[in-house]
Design a protein around this nucleic acid. Structure first.
Lengths: 328, 328
DNA sequence: CTGAAAGCGCTAACAA
DNA sequence: TTGTTAGCGCTTTCAG
């Protein structure tokens, strides 16, 4: 039997007669044969590898997105027959800005990966532009905020809807003075999340004046903002743009002897481990679903004669915990 | 000029005359040439890929090791000319035990990776046994607890020393009734960490009776254990086997109106994001250094005529925060 | 020090 | 439906 028949048995089983196929499969079993990926890769020009650049670790933050997302991506890729290749943008010298395309080009040109998953699109996604120019296949986790006509597939989570759900939850529990602690202007994600709060307040005819702070994404900034808001306008509930800020609010409450959920309600964003162990109500992004959709988009993208997939916007879910219910 | 000269220019530059080398390098620059990895991989039978299996995500835990370690490994690998290939053990059916070798075999046999980094050696490391049998090159993050004669290179962090540092720190601050909240017996890592507490107490002639609890690694278990110990023997400080347990202690203190660091001191283990944002003193593993050592061991292992590298044991560092000092 | 020949293991295209 | 031919792009011999 020729090697070609074996190749067909593996890649195009329906080309073989049933009994031939069975014979090949038996032989594969007996000989414990595994195809050599390198040779296949060289021949087919496809590595079945998805590249993903890891952003630098954020310490002293409550964010937990990366870890969960990487897991989800690995799992989703596996089911689609891909593996995930991680790389970093390289060490960034003090005071220098990281190269937005660092690491991508080499991997692609050396045919090490078939495509990329781009995750840090919040920076006005310079790399999507670059990748587009170089015609690298990629899908993005994150909307092309500034470019409605962007041609690449993307998947994102509707932050505004998540914050809206959080605000509605607080409204249902009787809160009317619901404060927002968000980020400094300039972040599209931050503006999106804030919009969810603002429009929900408007819907219910609730005033937002004096109930808002825009600060850096640190625990201390959240704590100070909460302290100032508590002193100035006495909100009974806080919705925050991140778990990090929400933890700051928890600290501010603790310093004043206020019990989260009983005296003042707090909601965070991202459902980080911090939220989970501290009993913080938080908006949880469906990262598993994001990964599945991204891989699906990638497969479509890599298929011959693919149609340009539109973007996908997923709804997050509110994880209700003690910090808004007061119940253990 | 023959292609061979180009190959040499890239892989064995010292074989060429200086001017030839320069000419080749110019041409590479001008033509924007990048070697095809697949072809190189096929020819040299080395993919320059390190495989690492991702353990399932632990939710509702304060652990943060994976994320930081993966980052560190990617960075260390990059500097050594490797990339990290992530894979999962596959979905585990309800009630079934995960296949300890799931995913490894295929990757190795198909020559997709050169070697593995094995991280989940705490389970009595069945996969190190399996990998040894199959003669797969690998290095382990974690000691071969049960097999002193294990032949593979490993790197680990001295948990006992970390807990010792934590206990000494508390002793220096005047604490004498220092309690330990650890895990159920059976975990070597847990026993190791506990030993650090026990021996430090003995060194200072402090009694340990009634100051110890062994529970599951959950926030609630930590909270209940702390409550029971506080009621029974009134410790003034707690050292915990994990940040998760330490968070439980923080909850128990909060319920009793006790201020962490001022009334009762608390130390965790792992320096998770939770510890960082909650101001929890914690033992931090030097994961960056672990990754560097692992990659170095891997390179030695893959070099022809390598010597069997011994294990490396690294010292963790205590991150002192509010939960033991009381100071903001 | 440089060049020519051979082949890594596989699969797309074609021929039988 | 199966077998034959050719070649993916590189590097390890070995000869000039």
């Amino acid at each position: 039997m020729s090697r070609q028949t074996v190749s067909n048995a593996i890649n195009n089983p329906d080309l073989l007669r049933a009994d031939t196929l069975a014979r090949v499969r038996d032989a594969i079993e007996v000989l414990d044969y595994t195809p050599n990926q390198a040779a296949r890769h060289l021949r087919t020009r496809s590595s079945h590898l998805i590249g993903m650049r890891l952003a630098p670790v954020q310490e002293f933050t409550a964010s937990a997105t990366t870890d969960r997302f990487v897991h989800a991506l690995v799992e989703a890729s596996r089911e689609a027959g891909y593996h995930v290749l991680l790389f970093s943008g390289g060490r960034v010298a003090e005071g220098e800005r990281p190269d937005p395309l660092g690491g991508y080009d080499d991997l692609l040109r050396s045919t090490s990966v078939d495509a990329f998953v781009v995750t840090d699109t919040y920076l006005g996604n310079p790399q999507t532009v670059g990748l587009t120019l170089r015609r690298a296949p990629f899908v993005a986790f994150g909307r092309p905020w500034d470019d409605a006509g962007a041609a690449h597939p993307w998947v994102d989570v509707d932050g505004a809807a998540g914050v809206q759900a959080a605000t509605e939850h607080l409204r249902e529990r009787g809160h009317e003075r619901i404060a927002w602690i968000g980020w400094q202007p300039g972040s599209r994600i931050g503006e999106d999340r804030r919009a969810g709060w603002h429009r929900t307040m408007a819907t219910h005819g609730l005033s937002t004046t004096g109930l808002e702070a825009a600060v850096d994404d640190t625990v201390d900034a959240g704590r100070e903002a909460a302290a100032a808001l508590l002193a100035a306008s006495g909100p009974t509930a806080f919705v925050c743009a991140s778990d990090t800020l929400a933890v700051g609010v928890l600290h501010a409450l603790g310093e004043r002897g206020l019990a989260p959920g009983r005296d003042v309600a707090v909601v965070g964003f991202d459902d980080s481990q911090v939220a989970q162990v501290m009993g913080l109500t938080s908006v949880r992004q469906p990262l598993e679903e994001v990964a599945v959709q991204l891989v699906a988009a990638l497969q479509a993208l890599l298929s011959p004669g693919h149609v340009t997939a539109p973007g996908v916007l997923l709804e997050p879910r509110l994880e209700v915990r003690r910090s808004t219910t007061g119940e253990y």
